[in-house]
Design a protein around this nucleic acid. Sequence first.
DNA 1: CCTACTACGCTTTTT
DNA 2: GCGTAGTAGG
Length: 740
Amino acid sequence: MSIYDSLNPRQKEAVFCTDGPLLLLAGAGSGKTRVLIHRIAYLIEEKKVNPWNIFAITFTNKAAGEMRERVDNMIGYGADKIWVSTFHSACVRILRRDIDKLGYNKNFSIYDTDDQKRTIRDVVKSLMYDKKMFTEKACMNTISTAKEQYMSVADFKEDAKGNFRLEKMATIYEKYQKQLETSNALDFDDILYKTVELFEHHPEVLEYWQERFKYIMVDEYQDTNAVQFLFVKKLASKYKNICVVGDDDQSIYKFRGADIRNILDFNSYFPDATIIKLEQNYRSTSNILNVANSVIRNNSGRMDKTLFTENGEGEKTAFSCYEDNYKEAEGIAKIIKKLSADTSNYSDFAVLNRTNAQSRVFEEKFMEYDIPYKIVGGVSFYARMEIRDIIAYMKLVHNICDDQAMKRIINVPRRGIGLTTIDKLNSYAIENGICLYDAACSVGKISDIKKAAASKILSFVQMIESFRDIAESGKVSELYAKILEETGYVENLTIEGTDEAKDRIRNIEELNSKIVNYEENASESNLDEFLSEVALISEVDSLSSDNAVTVMTIHSAKGLEFENVFLSGLEEGVFPSYIVTEYGDDEEIEEERRLFYVAATRAKKRLFISVAKKRAINGMTQYNDISRFVKEIDSDLLDLAPSFSKTSNISQIRSVNSYSSTAIKPANPMMTYKEAKEENPLEEGLSYKEGDRVRHIKFGLGTVKSITPVENDYEVVVDYDKHGVRRSYASFAKLKLEML
DNA sequence: CCTACTACGCTTTTT
DNA sequence: GCGTAGTAGG
């Protein structure tokens, strides 16, 4: 009896296939992490591979942490020698060793999205470009996309030739990159980009890491972008022992540069690659899988793969249609209340939304119904103002050229250094091609700055210098204590005395315990490593095991599983998102469809799908169609009317699953799919006919192209003046005849 | 130099 | 419908 006996034949095959390139197509819930762990064990125990030579790459710290733990549990000797790490933290380690070869200093700062945004803002301003035309968002997107594709400033310029806007973008990219160099800082994309650049220009460095990592494994491979692929490809090009695990159907990060072709074309990059499919699902019932399958099969260009399970049929997916999003949240709250009555096990439930904004109502209703819940997402701990401020002090001490850190704290807490003074410092720095702090050091030479202001700046510089002395000799916690003491940060908050200020003080204390905790766990505590860790951490990583319902976006739910899953807001314009339905192409619709697939396959036992006829979004009220994804589900997989319909129809007879037969009777009767269709306008007939001008609540004026009767309703095709041709159900669209 | 008000602008977000 | 960012006024 060996540890490998518990694996199914396909899984075994994957574990034993250790040499040469391997593509593991692992469907949702097919036990891929298990396979990876067993594969590592097999490499070490049977193939006598040195743990030192194994590298497992994940996307999230959470995934890395989980894998680390499971590896440690399974493998005794040498487990700690295996690199289990995210792309970014691996690259940071590689860069800390050799980035000086690219002209950066080894104590580089890591700029997060906010630092990036501010830098871009400064750049656009200094170029005097129209900030309406070159919004931070657009610039960030452009630069990020370029870097994700390993496109240099020079390449970008070349491509931009003749295009006015792109040429300006190229200038922004160039200046932005210059600014980062002056600040000795890398943004998230640079971390990958610079590593690949290092490999490319310094073969001896690449050689070193190729020898180090003879066996490479990449999890969630469908989410890799071009530069990540280059990184992996270069590392693996010598020994070619590369195993990638992914599921093309679960690729949901295209908007962040993930390139699905990396998985679809894997065997053209590695011609002799073995391909193994894991198609047995151990998580969900077949009814749930079939819901997922019936939707995802509408995508083209998938790898051929069909999930099956031996878990039994299970219950049908309950479909409910509510009056509005408040009733929807309330209905879900009631079902949870009912279902958890015996067990009180709230952690078995998850509400998955398309957008974060949808969470709000659930928060309200769960409070009202006394259901413990936790909302994933929102402002992360390290994004809080006070935490960023303190960290900015540390970052400046660590890397004196970090201009964003400098700008953040030069007058925080208030020390009378105003915007005009900072502007003067800034122009001096730009003129001389130096960083802000260096400019501050020679403030005496800047004639524009008056004596009074100059002395304030000098005392700031002196303070930072004293911090640097501590950082040289002491621990992170000592530096932290010194910073708080000298700046009087907490005192300022205490004087404020508001509840908000008290919260902030608590957060600062929390930061202290995080630092202490770090020092206890890290092998050697240094500022360098601490700051890297902080920069690359995210709050979602600490998913606690509270007894609470989880409310989150589908994106954050990836990789998780729950007994009961509620998918809310299955409406056109919500899911799929209006951005895609209005401006997107087929590919983007397919990504939304994959998102639905990911969402549905999170459920183990029961899946609930709901829509609201009326939804309050961004301060407006919208009336949306039922999502196309619902219509794609085979209707016999759906329980259309869980017991409480007000009219008797066949759907009542069909509702025989266990939860609905226990007759949950909401105070406000839910609307069912059929009712929604019936409610209107069959009895009176439609007020409009083909060729009429009608008004849609969202799309405005349009001309009716055709009206087709369907079961209990009409499908109306309208050519809208502003939004083009759209089809909707008459009962949902509530079209009004436009009187002339 | 700091505070208060208005205007704007909205998907998803592993790092 | 809310949070942020930029501007005007004290």
